[in-house]
């Protein structure tokens, strides 16, 4: 059952990644669509992590005791002022795991 689950998940995920890379698929993207798609990375990445940071058990959790939120704010400040990916992730994770 686990192998079947893994196999079908692999199939679904691969198709979603590959589908529009297939040249035989008849699809022309106009300029507006391409502009719309240029926002995909910031929009999707934000939508993945925002609930992790702001929500706990389906309730808004804005508090100094929410270590995910405090850690995320520290990461934002580090990313903004240093513009260094490695430094941002290493320092913010260090603070999160050892202090918060």
């Amino acid at each position: 059952m686990i192998w079947l689950t893994l196999g079908l998940m692999t199939l679904i995920i691969f198709i979603s990644r590959y589908l529009f890379l297939e040249p035989k698929l008849p699809l022309k993207l106009n300029k507006s669509t391409l502009q719309f798609l240029s926002y995909a990375a910031p929009a999707v990445l934000t939508a993945i992590i925002a609930p992790l940071v702001f929500v706990k058990e389906h309730a808004l959790y804005i508090s100094i005791h929410n270590s995910y939120l405090v850690g995320a704010i520290i990461a934002c400040l580090l990313a903004y002022f240093t513009r260094n990916t490695l430094l941002t992730v290493v320092v913010s994770m260090g603070i999160f795991f050892f202090i918060l």
Binding site: V53, A75, T88, V89
Partner: peptide, 18 residues
């Protein structure tokens, strides 16, 4: 342990410069 904070931290480091 809160290992999933890693993904928040990583994506923030990607989003802010974008």
């Amino acid at each position: 342990w809160g290992l999933d904070f890693a993904i928040a931290s990583t994506f923030i480091a990607l989003i802010i410069p974008m």
